[in-house]
């Protein structure tokens, strides 16, 4: 008698974030029905009120850790997950909300909220990997949905995901784009930024703003030098490195060098 194979279970978790990366799963309009057939979506609050207690074969985690409660919650998620993959800049680097890491969070609270005493938050926004072991990190603000499908498929099959770690520059060359920095003098983070977007910004005549975070071993000093040569002031260099992956190394260290 044939053994009926159990479908792998998938869970999707949200911490401090904009929902955009988990939305990317629902944005796979052509593949979603197939995905529902291939996996058992066991926990996905944004999509269904049917929630299973776990354990889960694969957990996708969106968002960063910014509260004491979430420090506890992510440990529980890890405990109940066989494999844990973080998706997006918040989960992999702390996200835009990690800009608090460079300031006094009490000042931030008092700017936004009339009653600061009601707010419970940590002084920093940190990536998931600062709290629990992570099996794979998928970068991007937001992530690329084709890469998300690749990662989910790879984990369910049990192979390594194919996600290139080279720079956006390589993607530009593959696309045949004219270099916006060389040809137009437009400041661009492409030389130090992780691939994955398909060189989107240069394809739309603007410089890359680094939403996929740092590539493997980027030469930050060389890029900062080039930016200065183009006339980008120190304050604007800091701004360029401090956006959606501000707390990621080496963006964080390089921005500090120019923050005077």
């Amino acid at each position: 008698m044939p053994v009926k194979l159990r479908k792998p279970t998938l869970a999707v978790w949200k911490f401090a974030s904009c929902d955009g990366c988990q939305l990317s799963l629902l944005d796979c309009e052509d593949e979603l029905v197939g995905l529902i057939g291939a996996v058992d979506i066991a926990y996905f609050l944004e999509a269904s009120s049917a929630l299973q207690p776990g354990p889960y074969d694969l957990s996708l985690v969106e968002g960063s850790i910014t509260t004491a409660h979430d420090v506890t919650r992510i440990k529980e998620v890890r405990r109940r997950s066989r494999q844990l993959v973080t998706i997006g800049a918040c989960a992999t680097a702390g996200g835009i909300q990690a800009l608090r890491n460079f300031k006094d969070v009490r000042e931030f609270i008092s700017i936004v909220y009339a009653r600061p005493d009601y707010i419970e938050t940590l002084a920093t926004s940190t990536p998931i990997s600062a709290h629990v072991a992570v099996d794979f990190e998928l970068h991007g603000c937001p992530i690329n949905k084709a890469q998300l499908l690749e990662v989910v498929s790879a984990f369910l099959i049990g192979r390594n995901p194919i996600v290139p770690a080279h720079s956006v520059c390589i993607e530009c060359k593959l696309k045949g784009n004219v270099c916006v920095m060389v040809a137009h003098g437009t400041p661009c983070l492409g030389p130090v930024t992780h691939a994955g977007c398909g060189a989107l910004c240069p394809s739309y005549d603007r410089g890359c703003y680094g939403c996929f975070g740092p590539m493997e071993s980027p030469n930050m000093t060389a890029l900062s030098h080039e930016l200065s040569e183009l006339g980008v002031g120190e304050r604007d260099i800091v701004r360029l490195y401090r956006t959606f992956n501000a707390a990621a190394e080496p963006f964080s260290t390089e921005s500090a060098k120019h923050d005077r």
């Binding site: 904009c18 910014t66 835009i96 909300q97």
Partner: peptide, 30 residues
């Protein structure tokens, strides 16, 4: 939902960066 303090960290940013930053408030209606 934990607060993310957009109004606080927008202070000191360049005006041209604002639409890219505020988009990140919501992935559904950026």
């Amino acid at each position: 939902e934990p607060p993310r303090f957009f109004e606080a960290f927008l202070r000191g940013r360049a005006y041209r960066e604002v639409p890219d930053i505020t988009a990140r408030i919501c992935g559904i209606c950026p």
